[in-house]
Every structure is written in C-alpha cells, then in structure tokens.
Design a binder for these strands. Structure first.
Lengths: 136, 136
DNA sequence: GGTAAACCTGTGTGTTGCTCACAGGTCAAT
DNA sequence: ATTGACCTGTGAGCAACACACAGGTTTACC
C-alpha cells in the first residue's frame, strides 16, 4: 500500500501517516521510485497508534510502549502508569478549561451592556482591562 | 526596568517577556550594553496582554486588537467578535476533553481487572487494542 | 585594585502533533 | 506523445512559550 491508501483505509490524512513514518513508528519499504510501501504489519501498528492517541497517550508514550513491546515484555505496567499520569493531566486541563469557559461567558454577557469606548493614553481596551480588573 | 524586573512585577517568566518583545508587542529601548529597558507604558501594555490571554484571546487576536486600538479606533467590536469565536472553540474543546476524560477513566478502571499479557505477532498491547475495539 | 561567585542578559533552538507549500513524479486516457 | 488528474517526498510552518548556552554585570570580600 502507498501512503494515501493506508491513510484512507484508517481515515486519517496522508500527512499524518508521513509524520508517523518520519518519527520511525512505521517502517515502510522503499520502491525503485522512492515511494514508500506499507505492509499489513504497518496497518496493525498504525491502528494501535491511533487507538492509543484516542486514549490520550502522547506520541512519546507510544514510543515507550512500542519499545517495551518490541522487547517482548508485557507493556501493561507501563501503560497503566502512563494512563494514570495522562488522566491526571487531563483532569487538570479540564478544570482549567472549565474556569476559562466561565470567565469567557461572564465577560461576553457583561460586555453586551457595556458601551464602546475609544482608547486613551493608558487604556487599550476598556472592556478587557475593566473586566479582569475585577477578578482576583 | 530590565526584563527580569518587569517579569517579576507581573509574575510571569522573563522568557515570556522576551517572547512578547520579540513579536513586537513590547518595544523597549536599548541601552549601551545591549540590554533592553522597559518603561511604564510597556507595563500597561503587558498587563493588557496578560488580561487578554487569560480571557482566551490568542496572540494573533491581541495583535489585531492592539492594531485597531493604535489607529485610535474603538477595538470593542473586534473584541466582541473575537471572544464569540474563541468561546465557541473553547466550548468545543471542552466537550472533546470531557469525552476523552470519560474514555480514559473507563479504560483505567477496566484495566484494573485485566491481566497483563505479552505481545504477540499481531498484538502490541491488548489493553489498548482490546479497549478501543469495543468503542464506536 | 582585584577577584570570585551569584545573578543576569540576548540569541538561537526545542517543544507537540501534526498541516501546508511546493516542485516534481506517475498513470490512465486520448 | 501528450494532456490532465492525481499522487509523491521533503522541508518548512504553526502556538506560545521554555530551555540551553556563552558571556556580561553586580556584589562581597580581601
């Protein structure tokens, strides 16, 4: 299979496949014209990569998992350790995003009843500067 | 003020100040030894930048707002338009993160009762591959 | 005056996970 | 042979900073 074929098969962009190839996750064979040819093993591998990505693992995590697995060791302990870390980070970012979301909503509704104003010597935008001045 | 002083005053890293300077948001004067010196106007400007960032505006948004404001136009319409876009994006990412978070939690709890397993010819990590196989 | 350590500086590069631009190659139809 | 559609790999770009590094500055002490 060539790059677009494997990309279409797994419903991702050809550029993504090229990326995973570039970082060594996929190792296609090269034909006479320089094109890269992917084999069924690459499909399995790519499918695994996508599954892991969709579970929040980073590319570096995947590298570690692939390496462990290639040593014929069970990667499960590594996977359990990593998902715990990633979940913790995700919860944190989720909280942060939640707060940001509320701030943005509050600003938007507040600004609906605030008249426009021209910038002055020490004011760039009174909406923004006025809003955050109230916050802790 | 030199870079670290202004950074400490606004509780951000000196590297962030350097970044904003590099992209032209701050325009310090240069002294004989090549050091950059920031004036009170830069503090005002930086404070504005941080307020905007904390409201979810991108650096590019801020560039647009600063430009409008420098033309002595009221940047308010621009600001209203931008926050609406950014809020929409934030809501979307919030939803995505929520789903990811649930998937990760589900995977983690599911894997607590799943035994380790060595990789095989067509299995890299049965935890990951087994989990996502169930998903839509 | 000297000098050593602590602290600070600007510039250049690295980060994540891809996406985009581009110059050229391939292939089927004419 | 030649047109046109489609495909290819490589290199650069993105966001918003953080980091590495070689060297300059300042302070404390003799």
């Amino acid at each position: 299979m060539r790059v677009k074929q494997i990309a279409d098969a797994l419903e991702i962009s050809a550029d993504s496949v090229r990326y995973y190839t570039r970082i060594g996750f996929l190792v296609p064979s090269k034909s006479h014209n320089g094109y890269k040819y992917y084999r069924p093993a690459d499909v399995t591998r790519l499918r695994f990569i996508l599954s892991a990505r969709s579970l929040g693992f980073s590319v570096n995590d995947i590298k570690e998992i692939l390496f462990t697995s290639s040593q014929t060791n069970a990667p499960c302990p590594t996977v359990r350790r990593l998902i715990e870390q990633r979940l913790k980070e995700t919860e944190q970012r989720y909280q942060d995003m939640h707060k940001l979301r509320l701030r943005m909503r509050k600003a938007m509704s507040e600004w609906e009843n605030t008249p426009d104003q021209h910038p002055t010597a020490d004011t760039i935008c009174h909406l923004i500067e006025g809003f955050t001045a109230l916050k802790s």
